[in-house]
Design a protein around this nucleic acid. Structure first.
Lengths: 202, 202
DNA sequence: ATAAAAATTAATCAATTGTTTAAAACATTG
DNA sequence: CAATGTTTTAAACAATTGATTAATTTTTAT
């Protein structure tokens, strides 16, 4: 009943193992043999199914981006008010990153160090819709005037940084690593409250 | 008058080059020859002055932490009210990270991937003083009740993430990379305002 | 059952890695 | 100047890297 009971086909085994290892150690810190060992297969199979370490990484990297964008995609263009939408967005993001705590660091770090390995991250049109919605809300005096990018920044920062900073917070504020999920949960409520207050009460 | 006019002694040349390369590419992405080339010296000199790539990295890594902590050290334990202190802290942090935009990513990423290369990051007592000050302010009803760690998280997140997310923001919100510093500056005012409002008006 | 195709393996490849060596160049001191 | 110590160099080291090979096992189809 543990986690090693999934046989799967070889290709998926490799991809799953590669995802785990790449996310933990990054492209540069990961060797072909790391992946092979994690997947329990021969080193040559990685190049048999995917043609190179680089090609494999590109797939994982793209998947990770899709995972990030996809979850909020529908929500972003839903025809509901910002008063509803923003808390739902933040909840969805918190949910995603609590399940995959170092997705954020992976995306940010690898994007910084290997922008060439990031193929086609189509700027999702849903995001454009959301930014437009903010702009209109500003113009109609519904929310505090500011460039839409600031709202995006507020949401992303206050959700993702909780997970980015876990080691730092554990050390600096003497938080218990095992109860960090609780802290993150409290923080979600807090920042959602704070951002909503700031946007709507002015 | 450019930047290549600094002769310096060899040891400092290496350390400076190593800092630049390590901060950009991380420990795993940096080769001894990368450093040598950036410093304009022979490969062997890195091991002559510092005994290994690992030892050199440890120094750089520690220095980067000191840079981060030192700047706020005095401020943190200054006997002034939180109403003064928090905006000053955020301004100081913004100032630091605007001068070294990828310091944050470097610290977070390398700490995650190579915790063993982080020697003695003494949890600064100044931080303890600050957290105490917050706790007392909560007990006296001066600020909204919350665990002090949340305040720390709010400050760090909203300052650092602006620099962490530059590539993402540029792409997602169509920001101009060359004017990103302006955006960051506006955001500083915005988040300082937001956090102060949230803490003191409740 | 047998042939063809696909999947897997161990062994090996050249290139690059961090590090060391031994000699040369430079500086310092008597 | 000679002698000594320090700094710098080119060359080489073994180990590890991503990738390929050619042979073998397993699967599939006839």
């Amino acid at each position: 009943m543990s986690e090693e009971t999934v046989p799967l086909n070889t290709e998926k085994r490799i991809k799953e193992a590669a995802r785990k290892v790449f996310m933990e150690k990054g492209f540069d810190g990961t060797t072909s043999r790391d992946i092979a060992e994690a997947a329990g297969i021969n080193v040559a199979l990685t190049n048999y199914y995917f043609r190179s370490k680089e090609k494999l990484f590109k797939m994982i990297f793209e998947d990770a981006h899709r995972e990030f964008f996809h979850e909020s995609h529908e929500l972003l263009q839903k025809p509901i008010s910002l008063r509803e939408k923003i808390p739902q967005l933040m909840a969805a993001d918190f949910n995603l990153f609590s399940k995959t705590p170092n997705l954020s660091l992976f995306l940010l770090a690898e994007r910084h160090r290997h922008p060439e390995l990031l193929a086609s991250v189509e700027q999702p049109s849903a995001l454009g819709f959301f930014l437009n919605q903010i702009q209109e809300a500003v113009e109609q005096g519904e929310i505090r005037p500011m460039a839409p990018a600031h709202v995006l920044q507020l949401i992303m920062a206050n959700v993702q940084f909780v997970y980015l900073s876990k080691p730092v917070m554990v050390q600096c504020a003497n938080l218990n690593p095992t109860t960090y999920a609780d802290f993150a949960g409290q923080h979600q409520q807090l920042v959602t409250d704070m951002i909503m207050n700031y946007l709507f009460n002015f």
